[in-house]
Design a protein around this nucleic acid. Structure first.
Lengths: 221, 221
DNA sequence: CAGCTAATGTACGAACCAGTACGTTAGTCA
DNA sequence: TGACTAACGTACTGGTTCGTACATTAGCTG
């Protein structure tokens, strides 16, 4: 995060549309993630930027569009991360495990994003539906999964004909739940799923689970 | 749901505290699940009962306590369902699959509950923390899992020493994600995870996954 | 049946909050 | 350097929303 209280330098730009917009998006991301869509306060967002509420409406149009813009940027970040994926040099089993671990790490590193997704689901993905950008964002990870699954099937390492989207859902489930539901789970079962001391344990568990599923002997159906 | 528009019978009770309370809880559950905590409107809840807003404050004290009461009842329902669990007559593999399927079914049948849990996580489980009742609600399912795991380990069917809470988290992850994130997942990947035509597919997938994990040959660590 | 209390309804207030009307200034370009 | 426009600030409003003061009644109990 950029410092907010730096003194107004004479040489510094007072007016910088790109910077103002980015700052609003940063703060809005935090505020929406903190309190949910309806719990978030436009005034609070404005107060925590070095600009005013007027600018939020000037640049984004309204609270609803601001939230959509926040989502667009958040999804953009994971899309970029997924584009960095490079597991083609690994054998299928190692590649899938690596992919699962990277997904795990990304979820852990971006709890705000997880919260935004939860919030958007409460609102039945209406903002994604309203966004042209998000409609065609796709998922590079899915292509990677497809390639690994094909290679694994060909080499005979993977016993079942598993769909890429299904496998993505399976991996995401575990990663998402661990972060998104850590509060209720912790309160009810007395176990912090995001405890750093347990991190490796759960990371391994995810990999084991996915590999076991893909390599298990299964009755033909 | 009870009918609301039945005519005022002369013999019928006009005043019925238990009934009024229950009706408020029913409607509040729907409203909170629909819109989230901050999105929910106390006036809207009142309008959809046959009583008034005054009664909500009379019986529950405020919006916050009403939400806590809604959570308490919702968790009470799954606790009851879990107490009906009877898989002791099955062998460990079949028992675990059955348990997973019942969890799957319960999630599918109670989407409102899933939404409430998501909402409570956005609020960092503060209402659960504030509730004495929820602090010690426990989980009968956990005891069942413990017994099955012990039996499976003893019989040599299960290869790994898996913790009951961890396995519960694994099963819940899949079931929860499928319902909670169906909107964003559907919007982004064009696949409805709750499509009835795919129900058996995902139910089987969950069972296969859990069994594969528990019975896989794993390197000793 | 008198009187007491739990249960209920009405009407209102005060705070909050998204959004805007209106005015101002910085930077740029002819 | 003058003037034009994008960028920005202030102050306000209209509607919403949680919560409550006050009035009323049903039904029980002695």
């Amino acid at each position: 995060m950029t410092r907010v209280d730096e003194p107004a330098r004479p040489g510094g730009r007072i007016r910088d549309a790109a910077r103002t917009k980015a700052e609003i998006l940063d703060v809005a991301t935090q505020e929406f993630a903190r309190a949910g869509y309806d719990g978030a306060r436009v005034d609070e967002i404005a107060a925590r930027t070095r600009t005013t509420k007027r600018m939020i409406y000037y640049y984004f149009g309204g609270k609803e569009q601001l939230f959509t813009a926040v989502l667009e940027r958040a999804y953009g970040v994971i899309r970029e991360a997924e584009q960095q994926l490079d597991v083609d040099h690994l054998d299928p089993v190692a590649a899938i495990r690596r992919l699962a671990e990277l997904t795990f790490d990304h979820h852990e590193r971006h709890p705000d994003f997880i919260r935004l997704v939860s919030i958007e689901n409460i609102h039945e993905a209406e903002h994604i539906a309203a966004s042209e950008k998000l409609g065609r964002i796709g998922s590079p990870a899915l292509e990677v999964i497809r390639r690994i699954l094909a290679a694994g099937r060909e080499s005979g390492l993977f016993t079942a004909d598993v769909d890429a989207v299904d496998l993505h859902a399976m991996i995401s489930s575990f990663c998402f739940f661990r972060v998104a539901n850590r509060h209720t789970f912790g309160a009810l079962f007395g176990r912090d799923l995001v405890d750093p001391a347990q991190r490796e344990h759960y990371r391994t568990m995810l990999g084991d689970m996915v590999i076991a599923y893909l390599t298990a002997e299964r009755a033909a159906d």
